[in-house]
Simulated assay, not measured.
Amino acid sequence: MRHCLALDLVDDADAIARYEAWHAPGAVPAAVTRSIRDADIIDMEIWRAHDRLFMIMETGPGFSPNAKAAADMASEDVQAWERLMWEFQRPLPQAAPGEKWVAMRRIYALSQQPS
């Protein structure tokens, strides 16, 4: 299953550069990468347009957002990562209190268009 989410960054070029550096290959702590894979997230990409981020996740049948959230809360490594990332991130204006990444809704699919 594909999940698409959005989040904003602090609108500061230096902060954005540091955020990107933290996401370079090998820069994300191994425990964080392991927690992603252990949740049956098969692939994950984060794309950026200025200060807006888009995350695309491909998940397997064992993925549960609730189980992932609970596992993240129980992991000191993931919590340390989340605190660090909040230095760079800011919620979308329409995000609910405490909501970080906001789920996006697909509105178009070429595959559903007539030939």
Rank of each mutant, 00 (worst) to 15 (best):
A69R: 13
L110S: 12
M73Q: 13
R52M: 12
R48W: 06
G98C: 06
A15I: 01
A67T: 05
P65N: 11
D72A: 13
R105V: 14
W86E: 14
W86R: 13
M57L: 13
V10L: 09
A13M: 10
D11Q: 09
Q79S: 11
W101E: 09
A70P: 04
M85I: 08
H23S: 05
S115I: 11
D14A: 15
R37L: 04
R106I: 10
I36C: 08
K100E: 13
A95C: 02
E82V: 11
D11L: 11
G26A: 08
D38V: 11
E45W: 10
P61A: 15
V102Q: 04
A103G: 12
I107N: 00
A39I: 06
M85T: 06
I16E: 00
F63I: 00
G26H: 10
E58F: 01
P29R: 08
D40H: 13
L5D: 03
G62Y: 02
R37S: 13
A13I: 15
F88R: 01
A74Y: 06
A17S: 10
E99A: 08
W101Y: 11
V10H: 06
M104N: 06
R83E: 11
S75V: 00
A67Q: 14
P25F: 05
R83Y: 09
R83C: 06
L5T: 02
R2L: 12
D8H: 07
D12I: 02
D38Y: 07
N66S: 10
M1C: 12
Q79I: 07
A71C: 03
A95E: 01
L110F: 09
D12L: 08
P61Q: 11
I36D: 01
D8P: 03
F63A: 00
E87I: 09
A109R: 09
M85P: 05
E76G: 04
A39T: 02
H50M: 08
G98Q: 05
K100Q: 14
F88N: 02
L84A: 08
F63S: 04
R106H: 09
I107F: 09
I42S: 10
H3C: 07
V78Y: 01
R34C: 07
A13E: 13
D12N: 14
A71N: 01
R18W: 07
D77E: 15
W81P: 01
W22N: 15
F54A: 09
R2K: 14
V102P: 00
F88Q: 00
I107W: 01
D72N: 14
N66M: 10
P61W: 10
W81I: 03
D38T: 11
G98L: 06
E82K: 13
M55C: 13
G60T: 00
M104E: 13
R48C: 07
A71F: 00
D14V: 15
W81S: 06
M57W: 10
G98V: 03
M57K: 14
R48F: 04
P93H: 05
Q89M: 12
M73W: 07
D8F: 03
D40W: 09
A109Q: 10
G60Y: 01
L9Y: 02
R37Q: 12
W101I: 09
W22A: 14
G62C: 00
L5K: 04
R34H: 03
W47V: 13
I36Y: 04
P65W: 06
T59D: 02
R37Y: 07
R105G: 05
Q94M: 13
A31E: 07
